[in-house]
């Protein structure tokens, strides 16, 4: 895979690369290079299938990471293209013209992370959260438990049983499973 990364490096700037498995390579590129790189990968190499398209919230860095998982089925290899975008104004270029299936991913990411993809169809159309008023729920500063507690409430009399507590009750405070 390393030769292939060098081939990319010759055309676009690769910030970092991380061979996760013999058949899975992870590379990071700048946002300006993302769309040219993906277009080049789709039209000139075997990596023309978008397997997965998702986002990660790096709240400490103030960035979102978009991950495009491309697969070359002939060579049985996958390439993970990671792009960091600004968290304060999350906007990325849509790839729906390359892969029509990306529309649903982009719709979902708009809803779950608030990342907007200008030009993508169904942008802002409700997918799962109809009438959502809070901040997007997959952002890490969204407190799911507190929201659920406030919006849906608990039935009175609910008790909480953590398996670790049960072990502690059975085997004393030392704990059985965690004691090596």
């Amino acid at each position: 895979m390393n030769e292939f990364v060098q081939e990319i490096q010759a055309r676009f700037e690769v910030l970092w690369s991380n061979p996760q498995r013999p058949d899975l390579m992870q590379i990071g590129v700048r946002q300006v290079n993302a769309l040219p790189l993906l277009t080049w990968l789709k039209s000139n190499t075997g990596y023309f299938i978008l397997n997965h398209f998702s986002a990660v919230d790096w709240i400490e860095d103030g960035e979102f990471q978009l991950t495009y998982l491309l697969t070359d089925y002939a060579a049985r290899r996958s390439l993970m293209v990671c792009v960091r975008i600004d968290r304060a104004a999350p906007t990325a270029e849509s790839v729906h013209h390359l892969w029509p299936e990306a529309v649903t991913y982009e719709q979902e990411m708009f809803e779950m992370f608030g990342i907007s993809f200008p030009g993508s169809p169904r942008q802002g159309v409700d997918l799962l959260l109809e009438g959502w008023e809070d901040i997007p729920p997959m952002r890490r500063d969204f407190d799911t438990a507190a929201f659920a507690e406030e919006a849906f409430g608990f039935r009175p009399g609910r008790t909480h049983t953590n398996p670790r507590d049960r072990v502690a009750i059975a085997f004393g405070q030392k704990g059985f499973l965690h004691d090596h």
């Binding site: 799962l128 959260l129 729920p137 969204f142 659920a148 849906f152 409430g153 608990f154 039935r155």
Partner: peptide
Amino acid sequence: TINGGMYWDSYSTIKI
């Protein structure tokens, strides 16, 4: 349906 079950902290499922 009784008290949330394993979705007790979910943002989109009702509990009671």
